[in-house]
């Protein structure tokens, strides 16, 4: 589904954020991208989600080479991903419902369908009773669940979460991870970056990054070498 071949990413005036990355993620997999701060986890997720292009190498997603993708086609590709960020990136001048409906407005879904799908997504993350509330009034865990609702409302085939539990205490973090596991169980590919490997009750793949390179320390993870 996603294949990295000799991928390098370098930001202007900086060292290589990623070096010689080769990996393959299959459809429906649960993948943890682990590593210390500055290891390149966020960069890797940005490359997967076509937010950025690699400096060298190719990224193949569903037979499309993302490196060769035209800028005007990028938004349409991004719609296939559900993105969740550590800082939630919620809009605090809108209520919960309006935050979640945004991807559907972008996809030009009619308002009746949108309302139904937003309520289903809010229900899935346990926030249906808070649809009229402003996200700023929610707890950290609830805000992250709201961000998940926004990511899943357009029914993406891949969920990408960049350190979604980084700012949460253990109880909330477990709650969030359980939501990801439930999506993986219904066939969604879930890619989660985190500092440490969570205790997953289900089968998963680990990609451990260190200084921009894939470390082979976790030998049980099947990687493309």
């Amino acid at each position: 589904m996603i294949k990295f071949e000799k991928v390098f990413k370098k930001y202007p005036g900086e060292m290589d954020a990623l070096q010689d990355i080769n990996l393959e993620i299959s459809s429906g997999e649960l993948v943890f991208v682990t590593g210390p701060s500055g290891a390149g986890k966020s960069t890797l997720l940005k490359l997967i989600s076509a937010v950025e292009k690699p400096t060298n190498g190719s990224i193949i997603f569903e037979n499309t080479n993302l490196s060769e993708l035209r800028n005007k086609d990028m938004p349409f590709l991004r719609r296939k991903f559900g993105m969740i960020f550590q800082d939630h990136k919620l809009l605090y001048d809108r209520n919960c419902f309006e935050n979640v409906v945004l991807p559907l407005e972008i996809n030009d879904i009619n308002p009746t369908d949108s309302a139904r799908r937003v309520r289903a997504a809010l229900n899935k993350v346990g926030l249906l009773n808070k649809e009229k509330m402003n996200p700023i009034t929610l707890s950290g865990g609830e805000q992250q669940r709201l961000a998940i609702a926004r990511a899943i409302v357009s029914r993406p085939s891949i969920l990408i979460a960049d350190e979604p539990t980084g700012n949460l205490d253990k109880g909330y973090a477990d709650e969030i991870m359980n939501i990801f596991y439930s999506f993986q169980q219904v066939g969604v590919t879930v890619i989660v970056s985190c500092h440490e490997l969570p205790k997953s009750p289900i089968k998963f793949k680990q990609i451990h990054l260190n200084k921009g390179q894939i470390s082979n320390s976790d030998s049980h993870v099947p990687l493309l070498s």
Binding site: P75, F76, R78, F81, L102, I106
Partner: peptide, 16 residues
């Protein structure tokens, strides 16, 4: 700014 950035990240086109 935030709305624009978030919209772009989740697939909004420039015309949108």
């Amino acid at each position: 700014q935030n709305e624009i950035l978030v919209s772009k990240l989740i697939g909004a086109t420039n015309s949108f």
